[in-house]
């Protein structure tokens, strides 16, 4: 297969978007990567990969170790986006918070900006701080608009019941911004959102490094046990970091057993927001490899959608 060219010609906003993949998406969620491109194309966005990207870098690790190193390494990605003339778009909350906070900090603190510029200059990179950073949800809700999204829903998923997990960093701008966009767009696809007491509980990714038992046997287990009891069709995420943690947690629970011994099989798939949108926009599961390379394959959901039950 030749290189996939996924850029659209039409452009609803006049803005050139560079999709920042991060670490998890290209290595563990290729189906989500493809579905995101299908959605962006369907909506007529001027959308392509941001190229040559590195780790965001994850603030939970690097900012804790040394804020200046975090700022500089994040600055390397910001400088790349600037050079490529794109608005840097993240769908992973962890990548977004790193880029967003670093850019804010660099704009507010001229000495830090100079420090970063100096280090980048030595690596033959130029950085002015003019780049824009957006979350994919902002692109969809603020730039495209909910009406245009609704107009592109040709296959409403009214028979699909899901739990959703927007993720902690998705709350950075308040519940009225990204969490609301997340919910409204999901509702536009026709899915039934099931409310649970665990919707805003952390995925446990950062806790995992200090206390894996709490991260898995509390955060992941409680959420998935609830999902199992409710017999939902999946848990929808947008953040690749949260996906990575859920995937790791489910693997542990499958291989090493659950703490209560009540569940013999964990079969609730973790779904990416873009998969739901792509399906609702009329794409078929095979258009983006929905059942490829997953710990829990959404086989039941795929049959349900195909049979229209």
């Amino acid at each position: 297969m030749g290189e996939t060219r996924l850029t659209t010609n039409s452009n609803v906003t006049g803005e050139k978007y560079g999709y920042f993949l991060g670490c998890v998406m290209p290595a563990k969620m290729p189906w989500a990567e493809k579905a995101t491109f299908l959605v962006a194309n369907k909506l007529g966005l001027n959308w392509d990969y941001m190229k040559e990207t590195l780790c965001c870098v994850r603030p939970g690790v690097w900012k804790t170790l040394d804020p200046d190193t975090w700022l500089t390494m994040t600055g390397q990605n910001l400088a790349l986006a600037e050079k490529q003339g794109v608005t840097l778009v993240d769908s992973c909350n962890g990548c977004w918070i790193s880029h967003y906070e670093a850019l804010e900090e660099l704009k507010d603190e001229p000495e830090k900006m100079e420090m970063v510029k100096e280090h980048l200059r030595k690596a033959n990179m130029d950085f002015q701080g003019t780049v824009k950073v957006k979350h994919f949800l902002q692109v969809l809700y603020e730039d495209v608009g909910i009406e245009k999204i609704k107009a592109n829903i040709t296959n409403p998923l009214t028979n699909v019941r899901v739990m959703r997990h927007v993720g902690c960093h998705g709350r950075k701008l308040g519940d009225d911004v990204l969490p609301r966009y997340f919910d409204e767009i999901l509702k536009a696809t026709g899915v039934q959102l099931v409310n649970t007491p665990y919707d805003s509980m952390c995925c446990g990714l950062l806790v995992y490094f200090s206390d894996p038992k709490i991260a898995i046997y509390r955060n992941v287990f409680k959420k998935f046990k609830f999902a199992q009891d409710l017999a939902v069709d999946g848990i929808v995420v947008i953040c690749s970091g949260c996906y990575d943690q859920f995937d790791r947690g489910v693997k542990v629970l499958q291989e090493e057993g659950d703490p209560t011994g009540e569940i013999t099989e964990f079969d609730i798939p973790v779904l990416h927001f873009s998969e739901i949108l792509a399906l609702a926009m009329g794409y078929k599961p095979e258009d983006f490899g929905m059942d490829v390379f997953r710990t829990v394959s959404p086989t039941k959901l795929i049959s349900k959608i195909k049979e229209g039950k």
């Binding site: 297969m1 996939t4 993949l21 290729p30 990567e33 493809k34 040559e52 590195l54 983006f288 390379f293």
Partner: peptide, 12 residues
């Protein structure tokens, strides 16, 4: 990645 209709090597 190939099975998902993507370039096997991401542009990272």
């Amino acid at each position: 990645r190939k099975a998902c209709h993507l370039d096997p090597m991401p542009p990272t």
